[in-house]
């Protein structure tokens, strides 16, 4: 049962109070690309891939659909020249970190992103925060967190906790869009428990 309706790409879509545009679109089978969204987690709004154009009361603006609450009568466009251009830039920026990440490669094809547009970065992490938030919000283990800010931001396992819980869990590994997470865990493990020669 839906509470009210809005329009996405010309389709009339029913939604319930409190749902986001992304949720409304997903239920209606309309695809919006996402990288930091996960249905079990609080909206994060970090990757900005899910950006869409909304028109309400005669004004158009760009918003991220994973956060923006669906409103009655809203007109949403999930693609436009500008949206595509922004998504392409975001992909090119992330591919400076993780040029071979399968989800990025697939999206790059769709949006014509060039993985070599910008100078490469040493870290593979794209800071989607899925691992950190999953560990915190779903597992409540707090084994992995972010450190530092801005361009120096990184993920970091807490060795004492990771040693106890991660081996039996590893549920965040498949969430990571890059190969970074597992590698970092393996490193943490080896530093925390160096095998005695």
């Amino acid at each position: 049962m839906s509470d009210f309706h809005l329009e996405i790409d010309g389709n009339k879509v029913g939604v319930k109070e409190g749902e986001t545009i992304l949720e409304a679109a997903q239920q209606a089978g309309i695809y919006i690309p996402t990288l930091c969204h996960h249905e079990k987690l609080e909206p994060f709004g970090g990757c900005r891939m899910c950006i869409v154009e909304v028109e309400s009361r005669g004004r158009t603006k760009l918003v991220v659909s994973c956060v923006y609450p669906a409103e009655a009568g809203l007109v949403v466009r999930t693609r436009s020249e500008k949206i595509d251009r922004i998504r392409k830039t975001i992909l090119e920026l992330l591919m400076a970190h993780a040029p071979d990440s399968p989800p990025l490669v697939a999206l790059a094809k769709e949006y014509g992103a060039n993985k070599d547009q910008f100078e490469k970065e040493s870290s593979f992490c794209i800071h989607c925060g899925l691992c950190v938030r999953y560990c915190e919000e779903v597992k409540k283990n707090y084994a992995v967190g972010f450190v530092d800010r801005g361009v120096r931001k990184e993920i970091s396992f807490i060795p004492e906790i990771a040693a106890k819980v991660c081996n039996d869990c590893k549920e965040c590994f498949p969430l990571c869009p890059t190969s970074y997470l597992q590698a970092t865990f393996v490193l943490t493990e080896s530093l925390a428990f160096p095998t005695v020669p």
Binding site: Y142, F146, I158
Partner: peptide, 12 residues
Amino acid sequence: VPFTRIQHIATF
């Protein structure tokens, strides 16, 4: 407060 959060604050 979980250590992950303290560590993030102390480095942020």
